[in-house]
Design a protein around this nucleic acid. Sequence first.
DNA 1: AATGAATGAGTCTTCATTCAT
DNA 2: GATGAATGAAGACTCATTCAT
Lengths: 204, 204, 204, 204
Amino acid sequence: MPRLTAAAKTEVRERLLAAAAEEFAAAGFDAARIDTIAARAGVAKGSVYNYFSTKEDLFAAVIAEGARAAAENFHRLPTGGTTRETLEALAAADVEVVRAQEAFQKVVVREAMSFRPTTYPLVVEHLAPYISAVTGVIESGVASGEVRSDQPSAQLALAFVGILGLLYVQHWGSGGTWPTLDEIPRLAVTLFYDGAGPRDGSSS
Amino acid sequence: MPRLTAAAKTEVRERLLAAAAEEFAAAGFDAARIDTIAARAGVAKGSVYNYFSTKEDLFAAVIAEGARAAAENFHRLPTGGTTRETLEALAAADVEVVRAQEAFQKVVVREAMSFRPTTYPLVVEHLAPYISAVTGVIESGVASGEVRSDQPSAQLALAFVGILGLLYVQHWGSGGTWPTLDEIPRLAVTLFYDGAGPRDGSSS
Amino acid sequence: MPRLTAAAKTEVRERLLAAAAEEFAAAGFDAARIDTIAARAGVAKGSVYNYFSTKEDLFAAVIAEGARAAAENFHRLPTGGTTRETLEALAAADVEVVRAQEAFQKVVVREAMSFRPTTYPLVVEHLAPYISAVTGVIESGVASGEVRSDQPSAQLALAFVGILGLLYVQHWGSGGTWPTLDEIPRLAVTLFYDGAGPRDGSSS
Amino acid sequence: MPRLTAAAKTEVRERLLAAAAEEFAAAGFDAARIDTIAARAGVAKGSVYNYFSTKEDLFAAVIAEGARAAAENFHRLPTGGTTRETLEALAAADVEVVRAQEAFQKVVVREAMSFRPTTYPLVVEHLAPYISAVTGVIESGVASGEVRSDQPSAQLALAFVGILGLLYVQHWGSGGTWPTLDEIPRLAVTLFYDGAGPRDGSSS
DNA sequence: AATGAATGAGTCTTCATTCAT
DNA sequence: GATGAATGAAGACTCATTCAT
């Protein structure tokens, strides 16, 4: 009989991941300290190495968990609305993930934006399902004439995800001032879909 | 009698800045090594400290130089075109700066996207003139009816600069595959100005 | 389960203090090397920092330990003799401390004599109980007419402690030649109590 | 013809010595910085090495100058008074030297009290003439019955010089509070000559 | 499995000394 | 002789990782 039940192990692992996400989000990979993470998770420093073989490994696990949670949304896509509505719903769902797991998402977004040779491939790999889900939505939009067809769908999908990330960056960078998390879905869709050109009367 | 002329000192300082930009761009602040920077600049490690009192100080100088070069464009704004043309010209000029000083701009963009408490204020401070110049262009566009008036100009300006940054991130993150630097000005304007909604025949 | 028992930790800490005292006594604060101290204590350099957060902190601990041992004597003051006998007994007890902890006492005496802004306050603070104990003895002497009353007791106490220190300085400075440790208590009392004026027959 | 007259060279040398004395007095040998000394003397750092080959050499020159000025007094000994008066006059003359050259004397006194292998021999060597002059005075006192004869004169001389030093230490250590420089000669003689034993009516 | 002390390679930074001008 | 930039050896301190208990 194990000294710890599987459930207990999982629970410690999750506490470690959460603590690590906080620390990596606040300090970045290099400045993050294992001591802090262990303390925040309420375990001894050495115990961290019973769960993750390396600081880098722990970091990767944080990214993976963040990306996993984000990607999960796209398995229960809302259907039946316009492309615009679908995209806004997606963004809204993503915002909920950010709300629930702010630290994880900060880490993912920062790494996605920082193209560091060590960590970039990780993020790309983990975000791939996410991106391809968005690509699917865009393609449907193109098919139905709701999305312009003169740009590759894959690139438009990247742009949408990028804009969403950008809004998070501005949210965090401004200390939550602007935009607020609530405003993000609508803003993302407006920016992505309508652009800044003059309105003929329609839209937000 | 000074051992070095003022010009020679400036030259060393510039070599150091360039070397530091390379290193910071490649490794990030924490992982960057003063040894590497000194070696790349062709001076002894100790000499770095004759020019910059601290690693952090050197980093700040790199940001300042990058932002300075970027902001310089906006003093010679093209005039007389449409807002769209002006924005594209601005983006094109910025791309030239990136081409000329790729490492510096990588550092600036990365820090702008990474909201680290230590460095974020620096970037914000140095990018302020840049942002407010773009805001001016947008405001003219609003006045002439070329830009939608239902969003604050300052926020639209942030969005434009953000999209530009995003495209750089994708450029660097993709290893230069897509978008290429050449494509960036047009893409930035298209995304920002037109959005992804369906075309009625015009554009791109 | 701790890797070391509390007793083992204390033991390492004491080895470090002893090694540090040796090194500080021999080289002075600035010239002392943490490497040397660690090596002498038989631990790795990094381990020093598990016990003391800073070289300065370690130094302060050495002073504190030295002063603590010195002050301890004064809690078991000999009573019932003349002031002269009491002072000589005190000095003799102090000499025993010096014998037992020569390096610690060297550090304390040197710092007490060197009025360096950084360390002087430390010494003053730690020697305070010591000085005030001596002051008490002197006051009794004044009350009983054994000590002159035309000088403040506090200042006489300082003088006594100073003379004791002076004799240590001459002991160490002369390589132990003169005075020897054994001679110090008698000498201290003679100098302090009788002075160099002519004898009318009495004393030493 | 030299680019600098001998007088000008001497003048720079003296400024350097004075600046060095200040710095060594304030910081101690190790913490003293050549930069600071050069700046305080109003010359470039490199110029220091035109006058002194080494930091240690400069330090030795400061000690030598301090000891030289102190020893000078003893060449014009007051004569014809009692031993007690002579000693007080000597102490008074020494206090004048300290007043005129406080930094130099601080350095000498501190090193005399700190028995550091590197510097102690220097001080001993330079103070030798000083000590032997005092020894001469004491010997005369012994001969005339004014000084006790049961202690070697050389040791009494050391004690007198030591007490003087001790009073300086207390003066500097107390921030000039007690004793003041003016009080020192009388105090030195009282302590040295009379001791703390009870008065029969005489003295201070 | 958990613990936390020990480890030591790795870093920034300082500063006496040199030397080209 | 004066200058001050360049040098690089040296040192305090950090921290991921290991491992005895």
